[in-house]
Design a protein around this nucleic acid. Structure first.
Lengths: 163, 163
DNA sequence: GCGGAAGTACTCGGATACCCACTGTCCGAGTAGGGAGGG
DNA sequence: CCCTCCCTACTCGGACAGTGGGTATCCGAGTACTTCCGC
């Protein structure tokens, strides 16, 4: 069980998009170069984010992506699910119903298997943590961790690429 | 991101092994037939459980697996990790260090990326739920859910297979 | 009848193919900006 | 000088190969039971 690498990329890109003014579009090309990842493949993650209405894309020169909602209104869960899908990590195959002693009348799919229930509960705890963590929190934490000089340099670098 | 189907099988098998007396060995063949899964493949999951010291295997006729610890001392987390591995679901690739504005002296790997930190926190919440849920809890819950008549039939069926 | 040894049948364990999904790449559709030309 | 139109160049979006891990399977090593034989 492993999350796609795209998840990491997507979160980093969202964090960057949350920093620039909302009228600035940043193309995938720049996002890819800044993060050192393959442009063409990153675009798939960006497409997923666009489909989930987390970013908005525009074509043509000066085109690219911008954030579609306030950073405080976007949770990590939304980003992760946009890229990774909303399927649960544990998909119950209802193995319990293969018991040779069970008759059809006992195979009630409305009663969830206790084992699946426990796994779902764990999934829910995972989702809950990610739901509470907002993109704005990440931005603030990184601001606190990374020296201001680096942040300024990065901003200038981005602006230089947009010309 | 999806867990192996083996996880489900392994938990069901552990639940069954927790029910029989500790001196009875159940072969993979019977476990597979009871749960309706391919015998040869299930054996890989059982091997993983044996490696993790959750079950003990014996060869020869009347051989098979038995539980190695008390059910109340075995958590779902142990079973899941035995089959799925202990790697975290999110493996940080340190994309942040690809920032072209960063110098080497700023690439301190001892300071964890806040994004990775958030993901690890979610993982930890997931693990915590599974750690608290013991195999004995599952056994009790299933006892409460499944009619006693079915449980008895299943026990007889298993004993019949062991002849 | 009893003990021991050989044979057998059954088990686990690791080594071996197959297949799907993640990874990585490419090209086409569409658009916004910029420049040229005319008024 | 300004407006309009066309062209270009750049973007996103979806369609197309490559690879690694999960899935499924097989066969060999090893052991405990069973049976047979000798005492």
């Amino acid at each position: 069980m492993k999350l796609k690498n795209q998840v990491e990329w997507a979160i980093h890109c969202m964090e960057l998009l949350a920093r620039v003014p909302s009228d600035v579009y940043i193309p995938t090309k720049v996002l890819a170069k800044f993060h050192g990842v393959p442009k063409e493949y990153l675009s798939k993650a960006m497409q997923a984010l666009a489909t989930a209405k987390l970013v908005e894309g525009t074509l043509g020169p000066k085109g690219g992506y911008r954030i579609a909602k306030k950073a405080s209104k976007i949770s990590l869960l939304e980003i992760v699910e946009a890229v990774e899908g909303k399927k649960r990590t544990f998909n119950c195959q209802e193995v319990r119903f293969n018991n040779p002693c069970l008759k059809k009348e006992h195979k009630d799919k409305n009663v969830t298997c206790m084992i699946a229930g426990a796994m779902y509960e764990a999934d829910e705890a995972w989702r809950k943590v990610l739901h509470k963590k907002k993109l704005s929190d990440i931005v603030a934490e990184i601001d606190h961790q990374v020296p201001a000089s680096i942040m300024e340099l990065s901003e200038e670098w981005i602006n230089g690429q947009l010309k």
